[in-house]
Design a protein around this nucleic acid. Sequence first.
DNA 1: CTAGATTGTCTAGCAGTGCTAGGATTCGGG
DNA 2: CCCGAATCCTAGCACTGCTAGACAATCTAG
Lengths: 190, 190
Amino acid sequence: MPTQSRRERARAERHELILRTARELAESIGWGAVTTRRLAEAIDYSQPVLYGHFENMNAIADAVAIQGIEELIDVLRHARTSTPDATAGLNALAKAYLKYASNHPAVYEAIFVRPTDLEFASTDSPLLLKTAFAEFQAAIEPFAAGEDLETLTEVLWSALHGQATLSHASRLRPELSSARADLLVKVITS
Amino acid sequence: MPTQSRRERARAERHELILRTARELAESIGWGAVTTRRLAEAIDYSQPVLYGHFENMNAIADAVAIQGIEELIDVLRHARTSTPDATAGLNALAKAYLKYASNHPAVYEAIFVRPTDLEFASTDSPLLLKTAFAEFQAAIEPFAAGEDLETLTEVLWSALHGQATLSHASRLRPELSSARADLLVKVITS
DNA sequence: CTAGATTGTCTAGCAGTGCTAGGATTCGGG
DNA sequence: CCCGAATCCTAGCACTGCTAGACAATCTAG
């Protein structure tokens, strides 16, 4: 039955088209301006089509967030494991995190800033968040030195998250992003 | 002419009423649900009255933010200067910051999270932000130890901001807020 | 004290939002 | 070829921020 599968394939393609377009729109005009009408216009369908794929507009942003966190996990893992020693690994992880937030601000916003019931509601998102958390934990574990590892990980992640969001809101001097990451790592590892 | 002054007084009172009500509403139902109609209903006037006092809805949130940052500056200064030594001062400042964010999440959101053109546009808000920044700087200055003071201040503030926002978004274990602040201070001062 | 001007307030309405019900249209199976 | 089913769109609801214009209250001046 090639018919059914073709339909399903077309449907899956449109599903991805919606996500890709929503992400592009958000990155170019901001989530606040990503409306159902604009998004529908961009994919060349009427608004109700969106609701055949997602429960509501928020679910679309959540789906983008889940895609994003998967990307982010890869980025962090790669940064952490492709360095000679633990200190360089932590530094690379911090830089990679800030770079991702800076390069994909709308996706970062969807993951960590936008109001969402993603953390506890969805099925797989808590696992993804835990996986991302584990990357931070693995990177900082060599420097725990008697401190509670989980608490230290929360402190590290929060510190980077704060730099990412304040940086995006133009509250920090933009040219010193790297220096802040360096200093944070230095303070933690010393 | 007592007439004119009475009018001005009534107008100023209503101005404050709007701000107070907006703040209360935001703290109880969130900024997203603070609409012009609901706010007008709450102060027992029609919506257009709001626009006689503020340019738009965003300006109301900005005004709440300015009130909030003034409060926050006082809170930080008091925490910092009412301790025996510098380490205790920094710790008290960190705790006070997180406590304010936790006790007034909507105000904190108005100041630091909500999209706003407050930082550069308004006349007095940059000064207020700088004053708040100076409080952080004064608290951490004894521990700079050769590092660039301003960069270190940004790192401290970002770290606390990250803890405040992630905490509010239920991404951190709520009962360990104090432990995270302690650990952050310990890491910085050691 | 009254007439006119000014100030203040509200009703009604605009365009845009998320979301949905119902009809139209296209498609696949018999 | 025709009927049922899946698919899609038009139209509309209740809401949003914001504004124009009518109305009422108040102050000023004669």
